[in-house]
Design a protein around this nucleic acid. Sequence first.
DNA 1: CGATTAACCTGGAAGC
DNA 2: TGCTTCCAGGTTAATC
Length: 290
Amino acid sequence: MPELPEVETVRRGLAPHLVGARIAKAQTKRADLRFPFPKRFAERLEGRRVEALRRRAKYLLAELDDGYIWVTHLGMTGRWSVIGAKRQPGDFYYAEPPNPAHTHVVLDMEAGRKGEATRLEFNDPRRFGYMDLIARDAFDSHPWFKGLGPEPLGNEFHAPYLAEAFAGKKANLKAALLDQRVVAGLGNIYVVEALHRAGIAPARAAGSVSKPRLEKLSVAIREVLEEAIAVGGSTLSDYASVDGAQGGFQQRFRVYDREGARCVTPKCGGAIKRAVHGGRSTFWCAKCQR
DNA sequence: CGATTAACCTGGAAGC
DNA sequence: TGCTTCCAGGTTAATC
């Protein structure tokens, strides 16, 4: 269930092992994930030094020293693990180790920032994840990236932007926020949670929402993402960070997966509803979301 | 244009 | 103990 906060958590966990380090050995265990790996993928990774690890929307971007960007999308169940990472019992629980039958990429790193040689494994039971190597100067025109909207935690995302993006739109708000061309990185959980915090019904036509409400919405989106990142994202079943730690934000869901429960908004207490739209569950409080 | 369905895959939970 | 059905973080194409 990697949405923006989960991908960001993985990025932060992976960075100390990747950035500044050279890939000593790369192995793929099959020819494809959701899509075929690029030609000679493993060979092209071997010997490369990772100069930076960034995130765009739900993609991880590793900038290599040969001018290529190595892209990973985690799909639904993709997981990067640092093998042998010390598990430090802290605020969060630990996930089951991934099933080795679904480990598809193995990287042996030379020394990273921490000075340790580590093994990194990509595991993905459903194989909705995907990877590619994109030349840096072709990145902006690449089909996965050229149409993406602004980062919701970036400076270009604010109420006036939403007003412009939604102008004349008859699609419902929830669908509009899931559209990566409008804003990049939100998924089902965080859209539903942000709409609840903003007090707006998911079925509202996007173009019909007032400016003050869009202000509330833009703030709610930022807040929910920042809170989620601070606790390592949300774990429904598969997701875990690179050291096996589960997220903590699932304990703070106000509507997601809470059908029939009472709304926690002060003085509300309405019943949380669930409906399916476009094949995905939507949760909201019929009393305080208008 | 917008809404819905299916497709890509596996595994876990629930129902009978 | 089976077996079947439904469901899940994402993305994209086809169809109505």
